[in-house]
């Protein structure tokens, strides 16, 4: 009986610690590269900065996502019925691996119907951006 309690405790403590250490490093990249403006949950900032999460614009122009991240944006766009014209800076220094992880993170969280991308897919796409 005593042993059982010990194991339950042991399990809870190990589980607790592993939960703390399990923070996704890509989530950190997302927060640093995107979250400052778009919010850590991709929710956007009021009517000033459009959301990444559940955006009808991204749903429709998903094939442009990599080029938007890479080159930034200065067009006026309409996202979920709101016109946006804030300039988005480029991320030309982002590596293929970083970009792959980031785009898969965005898809996994908010566009789950999109396929998982490999670095090869992403490199080809990045090379095609002007």
């Amino acid at each position: 009986m005593k042993n059982n309690i010990f194991f339950v405790f042991f399990f809870l403590i190990t589980f607790g610690f592993s939960a703390c250490n399990n923070e996704d490093p890509v989530a950190k990249t997302f927060q640093n590269k995107c979250g400052n403006c778009h919010g850590n949950n991709g929710e956007g900032l009021k009517q000033l900065i459009p959301p990444i999460a559940n955006s009808d614009y991204l749903q429709k122009h998903h094939e442009n996502l990599i080029c938007i991240i890479r080159n930034g944006m200065s067009d006026t766009i309409v996202v979920n019925g709101i016109m946006h014209h804030q300039i988005m800076p480029d991320n030309k220094d982002m590596s293929v691996i970083e970009m792959t992880n980031l785009v898969n993170y965005i898809n996994r969280n908010w566009y789950p119907d999109r396929p998982h991308l490999t670095t090869k897919d992403v490199r080809e796409k990045m090379d095609s951006c002007f």
Partner: peptide, 15 residues
């Protein structure tokens, strides 16, 4: 207003 780095974060906090 065109600040690409910390301003949006500051504004969300000031909100």
């Amino acid at each position: 207003t065109s600040c690409p780095t910390i301003c949006p974060k500051m504004k969300s906090q000031l909100l």
